[in-house]
Nucleic acid binder design. Structure first.
Lengths: 223, 223
DNA sequence: ATTTTTTTTTAGATCAGTCTAAATCTTATT
DNA sequence: AATAAGATTTAGACTGATCTAAAAAAAAAT
């Protein structure tokens, strides 16, 4: 486990996030578009990451993470999300201002610093976006929460939290029958605007905009 | 005031620190030895910094900071020292563990982040080493404190604080006649081990080890 | 005032990271 | 199955940052 450059860390993180969406391979172009670079640059980097045994890479056939790459990605994500908590909880940033800052802070790689920060923040389990924070061993301590807008059609989950507690928002949820603990199935996602058709508790169908679904946290495969 | 690379920031900071020692020009070799690189690398970088009008640079004749370079250096130092305070005050690091971490954190350059951090820390005026923290405008809010071990022979100052408040340390200071407010002149510094011969209040001569003098803060040119 | 020593700069390489443009491989279409 | 379309990789170039070795300039010593 040698030290990685910030660029290498960013690629790993991107691959992890793309794999999170479901597929077991991600393509060069997908990575390029996510990290806003060009396919040629990605190709280059993939060779380096493969050499370090952080990814499985077969030319022209996409990549996936090795055990080591997966663990490393989770450590990077851990740092990122702990800093996000710090920025929001301690420095009073809004949760929409923290992404670029956390992206920079996450590359300061000192296990001791991360441990102390974690402790200082009270060992938070979720970041301000509702995403889970991996523990010191790269383990997600609980079933991952996911934002409803990122749940794919056909998947079923349970609503566990909202990211926006304004009166207007909560009143709206109440009106359409969405509440914490409700079972929710995504029936359809409109690609054009990201809006979704939902089935609440197996009975009521509702249509919600992406602005709404992006503020609702879901736990997949509820018991 | 465009964004600088971490390397550029490190060079600026190094030049600033060397100029702080008194001279109005610093040499390529001095910089190289401070930042642990080679003269050739420094030469290269100096060209770039001169191009950006951060330093005055005349080949073979050393460098000094321009107004803009000076201000920039102070901003970098501000970030560095605020993070040092954070690491010690909030994350409970010892003041000897923070240097490399602060070196990395200082390169995250976001004015808003720095302002919020400053506020969160209660607008500290000195870092854990006793060095002053420049304000938002790059101004040192008070006469700079300096650690006694860094005072050169011949200079005179006033003792203003100690960094170590252990009973054993304070008892020792008392015994040799060192106290807060005492006038101190550095008569001699032994290069071998950094120990110093001091003249306290123009009367008493004492010999102190570097471990001792590194824990004593002095204000130069007392009134 | 030469010569020697030291310091500094240049020249030329290397590495990481990126790009554009061209070549190559895969996949979809006919 | 041949070809066109699309994705991916290579080739070659550039920037930033570094290095070693050689050349050049300044300072010190004779």
């Amino acid at each position: 486990m040698k030290k990685l450059t910030p660029a290498e860390e960013n690629y790993l993180k991107a691959i992890y996030h793309l794999l999170e969406e479901g597929p077991e391979k991600v393509s060069t172009n997908e990575i390029a578009s996510l990290i806003q670079s060009k396919a040629a640059s990605v190709s280059d980097m993939l060779k380096r990451l493969a050499e370090k045994e952080l990814i499985y890479y077969k030319k022209y056939h996409g990549v996936s993470l090795t055990e080591s790459g997966h663990k490393t990605a989770l450590h990077i994500i851990r740092r990122n999300r702990l800093w996000e908590v710090f920025l929001v909880e301690k420095l009073k940033f809004n949760w929409d201002e923290i992404d670029t800052l956390a992206e920079e802070l996450e590359h300061v790689n000192s296990p001791l610093l991360v441990r102390r920060l974690d402790e200082y923040l009270g060992f938070p389990k979720f970041d301000p976006h509702g995403d889970p924070i991996p523990d010191e061993f790269g383990e997600l301590s609980s079933k991952p929460r996911i934002v409803l807008s990122e749940v794919r059609s056909g998947q079923v989950g349970k609503i566990v939290a909202v990211n926006n507690s304004s009166a207007a928002f909560l009143k709206y949820l109440d009106k359409v029958g969405i509440y914490i603990g409700a079972k929710v199935e995504v029936l359809d996602t409109i690609e054009f605007d990201g809006s979704q058709e939902l089935l609440i508790d197996g009975q009521k169908k509702v249509f919600v905009s992406k602005e709404v679904s992006a503020n609702i946290q879901v736990m997949l495969h509820p018991g």
